[in-house]
């Protein structure tokens, strides 16, 4: 069965690109335009992986991530976070990686299941990183085993 990916971003063109690239790779893709919608679809669509923009109005990516983690139904889903090069969010990311803050915030997640990707995102890198997170979550493993 094809793996499912949910993309959460307030940037419509960005969603267009990501979902087209991933669909081409054979994933089933759904989109959400803000954090609230993202949380809802995480439950209904039950994706294997969520791609989450950090800087969004309303709920930001970190808040969405915390809520995902708090809900046992969504806590195990791998998350790939989008940051922008040189942006505030990236500085935050670097600072927190070194101070261990991300680890605290993501408590309960398998740290290996959370990854970051810097915009502008290159298609090749996106696909590789998605695969890596899926592997790290153990999802890719089952799928590979089932198909072989």
């Amino acid at each position: 069965m094809a793996l499912k990916i949910l993309c959460v971003d307030d940037d419509q063109p960005q969603l267009t690109i990501i979902s087209s690239v991933l669909k081409k790779e054979g994933y089933v893709v759904d989109i959400a335009l803000d954090g609230y919608q993202g949380l809802e679809k995480a439950r209904t669509f039950q994706p294997d992986l969520i791609i989450l923009d950090i800087m969004m109005p309303g709920l930001n990516g970190y808040q969405v991530c915390q809520k995902l983690q708090a809900d046992p139904e969504t806590a195990k889903i791998g998350v790939l976070m989008l940051t922008a090069k040189g942006g505030v969010d990236e500085k935050y990311r670097v600072a927190s990686e070194f101070s261990g803050k991300v680890k605290d915030r993501m408590h309960g997640f398998d740290v290996g299941a959370v990854e970051f990707l810097t915009k502008p995102i290159k298609a090749k890198e996106l696909v590789l990183r998605v695969k890596a997170v899926l592997w790290a979550c153990g999802v890719g493993v089952e799928a590979e085993a089932a198909s072989s």
């Binding site: 419509q12 063109p13 267009t16 690109i17 087209s20 690239v21 081409k24 290159k122 298609a123």
Partner: peptide, 24 residues
């Protein structure tokens, strides 16, 4: 070249992205 890298050398995806970008 940069733009093509973003869409994985797929002109169709780039055309969609352009349309969606320019409209907003």
């Amino acid at each position: 070249r940069d733009a093509l890298e973003v869409v994985g050398d797929d002109v169709d995806i780039l055309r969609d992205a352009v349309a969606s970008s320019l409209s907003e």
